[in-house]
C-alpha cells in the first residue's frame, strides 16, 4: 500500500504533504504509486477532486473522521478524510500495490519515461487494465483492502495521532495560521504514525 497524506487549509491551500509506503507485513515504508514519479501531480488531482466529497460529507456528517469518502477507480486510489474542527482537512490517499507480491511493483517509477506531460504513461494512473485486476486480486488480503473495517480503524488511529501532533504544531507561537507546516518534528511524527498504524 502506498500513501499520500496531505493537510489542506479550509481554503484548499496545502499545508503539508508526505508520501510514504506501508511498513506492515514487510513493507519498507517507501511509496510506490501506480503513476510514474513524474506524474505525482496525479495524487494532487485526485486529492483535489475528492474535496467535492469532503465538502459534502462535512455538512452531512458530524464526525471528524469521515472514513473512506472517495475512490478514484482508474488508479485504485482511495481517499480517507479527517476534519479538524477549525476546518483543516486531513486527506489520506491510499493505493494498494499493483500486484499482491511486495516486489512486483518495483516498476512504480519505471513507466515514467522522464519528461513530457506525465511521461509516456497514461495520465489516468498507469495501465487501466492492470489496475482493476490487481485491485481485485489484492482485495482478498485484509491489509491491502482499503475499505475493510480494519483499514478504516487503522486510518482512524493514524488520523487521530496526526491530529494530536497537528494541534501541537499549530500551537507553536512561531507558526502562522495558513502557512505551510515545515516542522521537521511534525513530519517525523507523521512518519512515525504512519509506520505505527499503516
Amino acid at each position: 500500500m502506498s500513501y499520500y497524506f496531505t493537510i489542506l487549509s479550509p481554503t484548499d491551500v496545502p499545508l503539508f504533504n508526505i508520501a510514504f509506503g506501508t511498513s506492515k507485513s514487510g513493507g519498507d515504508g517507501i511509496a510506490r504509486f501506480r503513476f510514474p514519479d513524474t506524474a505525482q501531480y496525479m495524487n494532487q488531482f485526485i486529492i483535489h477532486s475528492s474535496l467535492d466529497m469532503v465538502e459534502e460529507a462535512q455538512w452531512m456528517n458530524g464526525n471528524m473522521y469521515l472514513k473512506h469518502i472517495d475512490t478514484y477507480p482508474p488508479a485504485s486510489a482511495y481517499i480517507s478524510a479527517f476534519l479538524t474542527p477549525s476546518g483543516a482537512r486531513f486527506l489520506l490517499l491510499h493505493q494498494p500495490p499493483h500486484a499482491a507480491g511486495p516486489n512486483a511493483n518495483a516498476g512504480g517509477s519505471g513507466g515514467g519515461g522522464g519528461g513530457g506531460i506525465g511521461g509516456g504513461s497514461s495520465i489516468l494512473g498507469g495501465s487501466f487494465a492492470a489496475g482493476s485486476s490487481a485491485a481485485r486480486a489484492s482485495a482478498s488480503s485484509i491489509a491491502a483492502n482499503p475499505t475493510s473495517p480494519q483499514t478504516e480503524e487503522a486510518v482512524r488511529q493514524f488520523m487521530a495521532e496526526v491530529y494530536e501532533n497537528y494541534v501541537k504544531t499549530v500551537m507553536n507561537p512561531f507558526y502562522r495560521q495558513g502557512m505551510e507546516i515545515r516542522s521537521a518534528v511534525f513530519r517525523s511524527r507523521v512518519t512515525a504514525a504512519g509506520r505505527k498504524w499503516l
Partner: peptide
C-alpha cells in the same frame, strides 16, 4: 516552551 519550534 511546550509546542514551540524555533523559526527555521
Amino acid at each position: 516552551a511546550d509546542f514551540v519550534e524555533l523559526p527555521d
